[in-house]
Amino acid sequence: MKKTPVWVWVVAGGFLACALTAVLSVILLFSRAGTLRGDGVGLVEVKGMILDSQEVVKQLRDLGKDGRVKAVVLRVDSPGGIVAPSQEIHDEVKKLAGRKKVVVSMGSLAASGGYYISAPASLIFANPGTITGSIGVLMKLTNVQGLMDKIGLKAFTLKTGEFKDSGSPLRPLTEAEKGVLQSVIDSAHSQFVRAVADGRKIPVDEVRKIADGRVLSGEQAKDLKLVDRLGTLQDAIEEAGRLGGIQGEPQVICPPKKKKLLLDLLVEEAAVRVTQTLRQETGLSAIYEPAAGVW
């Protein structure tokens, strides 16, 4: 009996492997399609410093337009961030909550800007030990004039107005400059207070009593009506399902995320570093974040 050449077995094995792969791919595709046909709860995550709002806003809008999504869970694990992006996410959450139930699930930290974006939600869950609150605004300034004098360097500034170089690290602030910058901080703080009062349906005067930058545990925040319930992410998902009219355990629907190329990542990292450097050098970016040492 003539033996079958080895290469025949290799080719046959290759064809068999390809066929099995194709069959498994088709089964997986139909399985996913069947899973995605049903209604579910959307999930958007906000992690880390809030330096930009575009991706989160896009995800919220995508879930708002998706007919399968009956409610949305916003998972917040953030110490806060820059004022404007926090406000943009806040406004998008508020708009979405007008059409679908939005349930916030706070992770280990949802303070300052992290709380700001949570305030307009339909319902807020926190863990008992979640660090939250910190309703306040700060502006960090650095002065290196003494160091410059020691090493013999002099700096000169030409400007078009009295306040154009306010916050310069090369000289102390004047009393007039302190007044101008404080007015900016006070304005941003008032906006924060009004947003919390409106979102949580609490009188403005009551919010002002605790809007002194203090951080709170999730348990304390519940007592002050800043959060509604104590519970986990899974608790929030299940409650969102109930609010959305879904029977049984809801499936979680995640919005498509932007695919980032290597160039995108490099540009994004560079932008973050530039933003942080500018904040450190000028100190003129008002930010929603808790006091140093908390995060």
Rank of each mutant, 00 (worst) to 15 (best):
K258V: 07
C18A: 15
A286N: 15
R229K: 13
I210E: 14
L261K: 11
G114M: 07
D66N: 13
I135M: 11
S187D: 14
L43W: 04
F192C: 03
L265T: 04
I210Q: 11
D52E: 10
S31T: 06
A111N: 00
A176Y: 09
A155Y: 06
E268I: 06
I246V: 00
E281A: 15
E88L: 04
L243N: 11
G293L: 10
K65W: 05
E268L: 09
G179W: 04
F156H: 14
T232A: 13
T275W: 09
L60P: 00
R208H: 10
L109R: 09
V267R: 11
T160F: 11
A119E: 03
K159P: 02
G34P: 09
G40D: 07
K100D: 00
K154F: 10
S217E: 01
G283D: 03
A240W: 10
C254R: 13
S108K: 10
V184N: 06
V267N: 11
K47C: 08
F30H: 05
R200M: 05
F15D: 09
S112E: 14
R171L: 05
L278V: 05
A292Y: 14
V26P: 06
L138D: 13
A286K: 12
A221N: 09
L141K: 02
D228Y: 12
V294H: 07
L226D: 11
V252F: 04
T130G: 01
I27P: 04
G231H: 01
I253A: 07
A33V: 01
S187L: 14
D205G: 10
P169G: 03
D205K: 15
R61W: 09
A195P: 11
I50P: 02
Q276V: 15
D228F: 07
P290W: 02
R68M: 09
R279G: 15
Q234K: 15
F163M: 07
